[in-house]
């Protein structure tokens, strides 16, 4: 019988064949689906890495300190998310609401960074039409930004729900599922930060085309 005791003692044993909650199982399956979605975009980026025929090239345009800051913000929003879930599960409604709001605010700051970055790149002459770097960069980060935006709306709804007292320990699963989505968006950014920003930060023109840089 000991095996049957749920791993997390806050949660009731589910009345299903596997003992797992159906909605949570579906969320994980959906995240598996989203892995393929982002995987295809990231693979496209990597295939086309360093194949831009005209500038601006990543080395001329990427602002690593700025992006480090926005990465840190998104990482901390994940921390806020997991703390919010903890407090909601413990029935500490006010703390829970505050931490959910923190997620919303941090997510909004991240989107602000992205908006600023897109504008800056536009001023520096990089658009999705400029070169293949612009194409792959804007579409990938834009799709990620759309995911974050959906997450912010979802979290805003959760904060409202928690504020009204409709989010309680017994239905904290609602928040947990939203949180899974949020964390997933965060890990996608971990990959994007590494492959687009850090790894590509020194990418210049393709070999043999250095002479064509226009400063």
């Amino acid at each position: 019988m000991t095996q049957a005791v749920a791993i997390d003692h806050h949660e009731p044993i589910e009345n299903t064949s596997t003992g797992l909650n159906s909605r949570k199982l579906m969320m994980w399956a959906f995240l598996g689906s989203d892995v393929m979605f982002f995987g295809a975009f990231i693979a496209t980026y990597l295939v086309y890495r360093g194949k831009s025929l005209v500038g601006p090239y990543p080395s001329e345009i990427l602002d690593i300190p700025l992006t480090t800051l926005s990465t840190f913000v998104l990482l901390m929003s994940s921390l806020a998310m997991v703390l919010a879930l903890h407090y909601v599960k413990d029935g500490e409604r006010n703390k829970g609401t505050l931490w959910i709001l923190a997620v919303v605010v941090l997510g909004a700051i991240f989107m602000g960074f992205q908006f600023y970055e897109f504008r800056e790149f536009g001023h520096l002459g990089l658009t999705p039409r400029t070169n293949i770097f612009g194409t792959t960069f804007f579409i990938l980060t834009g799709i990620h930004g759309a995911h974050v935006t959906i997450g912010i709306i979802w979290m805003g709804f959760m904060a409202y729900s928690s504020h009204k007292g409709a989010l309680r320990p017994d239905n904290a699963l609602d928040l947990e599922i939203a949180g899974l989505y949020w964390h997933f968006v965060d890990i996608v950014w971990i990959v994007i930060f590494t492959v687009i920003y850090l790894i590509s930060a020194n990418d210049g023109p393709p070999p043999g085309m250095e002479s064509m840089i226009t400063h």
Partner: peptide, 21 residues
């Protein structure tokens, strides 16, 4: 993030299998 924030470490392994596969 996956193991601790998303609780895979503390949760039933089938979730890990879903995601890992």
């Amino acid at each position: 993030v996956v193991a601790y924030f998303m609780h895979l470490r503390f949760d039933k392994p089938m979730f890990t299998w879903f995601f890992a596969s």
